[in-house]
Simulated scan of single mutants.
Amino acid sequence: MEGISHITFIVRDLERMATFLCQGLGAHEIYDSAGQNNSLSREKFFLLGGVWIAAMEGAPPAQRSYQHVAFSVSDTDLPRYQANLQALGVEIRPPRSRVEGEGQSLYFYDFDNHLFELHTGTLEQRLARYRSLAGR
């Protein structure tokens, strides 16, 4: 196993997803199959933080859940992303309760019920914090 190859989201409107990813999160569109579908349906590819994101036209999830994809961001960049997303009309979720020292998170839904998170902490920081709490 070498890691994650790509993440695919099924969306109603590829242009709206492109705006969400590019303007909201700073992704770069790198492919559009318009006119020559080579897969199940029209698709677009994006690079976001070095991750290949695929978006395909289709029927997105019917309901929302806590299943999500989280991207790592710095504390200083989090407010900028929040402003970008709010300008697009994206629904920002209230933060969940947190243990101090595990980082900050911004949770938000795209327009097709996919939940995203921007997180400022690392796995190592979270585990260290949880270990310190267990020792109390």
Rank of each mutant, 00 (worst) to 15 (best):
M1N: 13
E2S: 13
I4M: 14
I4G: 03
I4A: 13
H6G: 08
I7W: 08
F9S: 04
D13C: 08
L14K: 07
R16Q: 15
R16S: 07
L21K: 08
C22P: 05
C22E: 15
Q23D: 15
G24K: 09
A27K: 07
H28S: 15
E29K: 14
G35I: 02
N37S: 13
S39Y: 14
S39A: 13
L40G: 14
R42V: 05
E43P: 03
K44D: 05
K44W: 02
G49C: 04
V51L: 15
W52F: 11
I53L: 14
I53Y: 01
I53S: 01
A54K: 10
G58W: 06
P61W: 04
P61L: 03
A62K: 11
Q63E: 15
Q63L: 10
S65H: 08
H68W: 04
S72R: 15
L78R: 03
R80M: 10
Q82G: 01
Q82S: 07
Q82F: 04
A83E: 12
L85Y: 03
Q86Y: 02
R93A: 12
P94D: 12
S97W: 06
S97V: 11
S97M: 10
R98M: 12
E100K: 13
G101T: 07
Q104W: 06
F111E: 04
F111R: 03
T120N: 06
T120F: 04
T122C: 00
L123G: 06
R126E: 10
R126P: 00
L127A: 04
R129G: 00
R131F: 09
S132N: 07
L133Q: 04
R136M: 14
